[in-house]
Design a protein around this nucleic acid. Structure first.
Lengths: 345, 345
DNA sequence: GGTGATTCTGGGAACGTTACCAATTTTGTC
DNA sequence: GACAAAATTGGTAACGTTCCCAGAATCACC
């Protein structure tokens, strides 16, 4: 196996200096048309491929961007990654994707790897809520936060969905369809997202002069099984009548539906379930899940675009909160028959 | 903003030569314990971070591995990517993930980017079936193919699921539950996967002295809507009686279920649907989809491990075909009551 | 304490590119 | 055709690391 050709080889082949080849390869300012042609055909002939490692080394820019998400096989984060990737491609940079697996130890390790590869910047969904964010600055690369945890670090730019607005959309919908206070299925207590969610719900009702302290809540893991278990506990204490559930994520909502079904209850006839996320699986369950869709792809896209601005020296701190939208499917019953008639008429 | 510290800065700080610092940073052979301590504390003090760019440049190894999949937001490929990532992390390399979007133009562009970044090797699900595979060799980096298209390139190593075995598992199950020849919903004609799938089905029946030419098939896009449309066409010509569908992927299978439901048919009572892939969404639909699970994560893992061997100079061509397994849920009716009794008894 | 072996340390070259400066050629103008 | 200006070209020094070689220091052993 022979060594890969460099600009020096191209220069030799074309009978010019390596400076000239370099000029041709990077745009071709101040080179005669004859030489451009000469160099390009020489390069093609010996199969020259630009070495970005050397370019990065010299220029200090690697053209690499890092993104650390909790789990790339989680559909929400996969969608974020997809959006990030498209944005990165449009600015000619490549994306290094890492999964922290919700473990701050892994997060630390990945961040270290990113710094060592000299990424131009990185986007991060922070797991370790504890630290103060200054540790990120120490890494020496521009960074941007993803998601709710960003609120802990007021001095850092971030991109995420607007939880308050999203919760509002869901509760507006529930209210309009005749549902009083729903019961909540929340996620693990340790995550900040849980607090954000419940605060948004409380504020919503307080602003409407409803006392939210009566809302029963159940905590669970952010998984289908967590939702099942939480739902089972809620059903045990349920007095009867139509039960309305608002779950803090779609997987738990799906779990709630599955649990209800396995206890012989029909959704939406006996139980209404509102989700929160907008994962694709919600479309195929029975009934299809009515939920609040987060703009996952757009979050990914915007995070990279903002990061690029940061890299290019725009130091302004921006906290971008993208709007969620209601995805109306079939898991919430309309308890207002007259409105239903008005709507269908 | 000040320049990032280098080994030279560390050397100055510690009062030793840069060679010595380099030795300490890379393992510390042939250095006295006193100096190791000296250098390490100096490095910590000025916040030195190893620059992998320079290391790659010098050593010719970037520690970067590329993977090009059709779409990272597709759950199957997200899972493959996840496995690949875990394997990469375990060998201390970082993964560059790209989505080709089923477009060979994008594939070409991404491959170019990978070569330019000097990845140590890459893993690819080839979109352009047309070319002969020698173009990959020209890129100068070890590569490995993912999935069915790999069969077109006998001289290249590959990792994929065993379609023939997977189809066999599905048809064994259908046969055992009293289903005769199922109707097939296949994917887009242009993809090799379609041919592989139908060939496997044909072989299966020929080996069992059944004439497979009677099997009705419908082509569709590899999507839920594609499955819906194909199902609609199949239902139009369906004579009556229990209808058995075998779809070439889960999304189409879900589409088939949805279409059947919207036409007032009950699955599995009137219609049985067998999928092929094992995506998570299949678990939450109604009825949950019985399907053949591909070992997605393992495909990702093994592809990276094989690639590492290739990079390390093991030139042997290996075609790894990982076994699929049946995921029994609720979308296939048991048409053999006596067997059902025997099973439950 | 002298000899050879062993361990430790420093200096320089290299990896492939770009930026800068100087040298050369071409072009334009009177 | 002479001169200045502009365009084109070549040479050299970085970027931050590792590898190789040579010299210095330490050690073991007689």
């Amino acid at each position: 196996m022979t060594r890969r050709p460099t600009i020096i080889d191209v220069a030799k082949q074309a009978g010019v200096s390596k400076s000239t080849v370099a000029r041709v390869m990077s745009g071709g300012q101040h080179v005669s048309a004859r030489v451009v042609e000469l160099v390009e055909s020489a390069a093609k002939e010996i199969g020259y491929q630009k070495n970005n490692l050397a370019v990065s080394m010299r220029s200090g820019r690697s053209g690499l961007i890092g993104i650390v998400v909790p789990d790339i096989s989680n559909p929400f984060w996969a969608e974020v990654a997809r959006g990030a990737q498209d944005a990165a491609a449009s600015t000619n940079s490549s994306l290094l994707i890492f999964s922290s697996d919700w473990k701050s130890e892994r997060e630390r390790k990945h961040l270290q790897a990113l710094v060592n590869t000299r990424v131009d910047g990185f986007v991060l969904n922070r797991i370790s809520d504890s630290s103060d964010g200054r540790d990120l600055e120490l890494l020496g690369a521009p960074s941007l936060l993803l998601g709710t945890t960003a609120d802990l670090f007021p001095e850092k730019s971030s991109v995420g969905s607007d939880i308050t607005q999203g919760v509002g959309v869901a509760l507006d919908y529930l209210t309009a369809h005749g549902h009083e206070l729903p019961k909540l299925i929340l996620g693990s207590e340790r995550r900040l997202a849980r607090a954000k969610f419940i605060t948004a719900v409380n504020e919503y009702y307080i602003n409407r002069d409803v006392d939210p302290t009566r809302i029963p809540t159940e905590d669970g893991a952010y998984t289908v099984d967590g939702g099942r278990a939480a739902m089972a506990r809620l059903l045990k204490t349920h007095a009867g009548g139509h039960l309305t559930i608002f779950a803090a994520n779609d997987l738990m909502a799906l779990g709630a539906i599955l649990e209800a079904r396995s206890q012989g209850l029909n959704c939406p006839r006996d139980v209404s379930v509102m989700g929160f996320d907008g994962i694709p699986a919600g479309e195929f369950c029975d009934p299809p899940l009515t939920t609040v869709g987060k703009p996952a792809k757009e979050i990914g896209r915007q995070s990279i675009l903002s990061l690029q601005r940061l890299i290019d020296g725009d130091a302004a701190v921006a906290k971008l909160r993208l709007a969620c939208e209601l995805v109306e499917r079939g898991s919430v019953l309309n308890l207002n028959p007259e409105i239903a008639l008005a709507q269908t008429g």
